[in-house]
Nucleic acid binder design. Structure first.
Lengths: 243, 243
DNA sequence: CATTGTAAGATTGTCAACAATCTTCTTGAC
DNA sequence: GTCAAGAAGATTGTTGACAATCTTACAATG
């Protein structure tokens, strides 16, 4: 008699559950800003749209809350998470540390040569795009691919999940940090140094570069955000308190 | 007219919701090993015990899954999360990075003097306990208090939540790392250096010390774990392959 | 005796209705 | 005209029942 009587085989669910499907659809709308920050999400409306009962919708909202995309207030319902500038900064700080860990582990992984060619090819694309004027969209897309490659090379399921969640929460703001050609030039340098560190198996260097990259991204995004909120908060000459 | 029409006031829930209460009770049993790793948790049984319907129980299980205490397999139900040694290591690695961030932010916080006396008093207690033989329980308790103080000094709600969750998941193993007087001696030194770094406002030093402390704790815990699992896997002379 | 197919039981997934709470609109007083 | 109190509507929280799926035990077959 084997002693695994209480052990359930950890099988990947072949078919996505109903709450997961609903959560995925809602997630698209949130990160795509169809549902803007602060937007309230009501269970009955979602249930009616997807032709299901409120039960699965409630579970879907809990899943989204786990990823930080919605905030659930007891007896008040769910709304799309609205981040303060301080919170955006905090998330970038956490991302910097965990990205550093991720890239260090990859650089120290003997099996890293499997993804190195992919990384090098993508960084070459990045360098090309950074020289081309006005390719901001493509550049952001290429960075996204790079992060996906690195995520796939991360052996830790937990670390991957945490970084994925934090990345979703700040997706809207990450792009703000790459909006100038100057910033993209700096970004390319970081990526080149990172790939070199991974190639050399230099974990400490990979960690340092990764942290610096996210911190730079953080500062640029925050600066942009403050500019945006300032002009948004000045619709009339009303709030001009300081003479 | 203020523009906060879609904004819900972020009120702290005065009374814990029913799912939260259930989750709290179950959480105690999990971290207290009343429910051992791998133990299956069935909705109907829990519902019957707390005299509620299965709905709130399902939500409670989702809450526990968010904290990593249970694992939910679709159509299979929930079970107490069973961590492999590799996963324990991964969690400690993540904790090291985030503890580093937390303590750096505290050291750089101008408002840190508010908690400094508390920290110094607790570290003094720690030093006393480390010289007393056979005070392992008390030592672990004091370290727990220190971590609570540092958590309360963390301004970032997210960082606090993440560290709390990771701490719960590895609570069972953290104590393993402080089981010898020798380890406790080393631990005290780390805490003393950390408090000094916070007092001096030296963020970089605080981060370095915090990371080292968790990494040492990680190595000690892993070594203990491997020893435990080895002897657990040798109930008879059955698997004794090497003569 | 091992293996596979089947059936019964157990467990999770979903639903619709009811209860409790919150929000908003109206009404009245000052 | 402004503010407070109350009622009506809307929304979330909870429940019990039903459906779908999984596990386990048993029997038939090689």
């Amino acid at each position: 008699m084997p002693d695994d009587m209480t052990r359930l085989p950890e099988a990947a669910p072949l078919t996505q559950s109903l709450p997961e499907q609903i959560a995925a659809r809602l997630s698209e709308r949130i990160v795509g800003s169809t549902y803007p920050p602060g937007q309230r999400i009501m269970e009955q409306a979602v249930a009616a749209e997807f032709a299901v009962s409120r039960g699965p919708v409630r579970e879907a909202l809990r899943l989204l809350e786990k990823d930080g995309l919605v905030t659930i207030l007891p007896r008040r319902g769910a709304q799309v998470t609205n981040l303060s500038i301080a919170e955006v900064r905090e998330i970038f700080d956490i991302r910097a540390m965990l990205n550093g860990l991720r890239d260090r582990l990859i650089a120290e992984d003997p099996d890293r040569l499997r993804v190195l060619p992919l990384l090098e090819a993508e960084v070459a694309t990045l360098a090309r795009l950074s020289r081309a004027p006005g390719a901001g969209e493509d550049y952001v897309e290429a960075v996204s691919r790079l992060n996906r490659i690195l995520a796939s090379a991360t052996s830790s399921r937990r670390l991957r999940a945490m970084l994925g969640s934090l990345g979703l929460q700040t997706l809207r703001y990450s792009q703000l940090g790459l909006s100038t050609p100057q910033r993209r030039k700096q970004s390319v340098q970081h990526w080149q140094r990172l790939v070199k560190a991974i190639r050399d198996g230099d974990g400490a260097a990979a960690e340092r570069v990764a942290q610096q990259r996210v911190q730079d991204s953080r500062d640029a995004a925050i600066a942009q955000l403050q500019r945006l909120r300032l002009e948004a908060a000045t619709p009339k000459t009303k709030t001009g308190g300081a003479a």
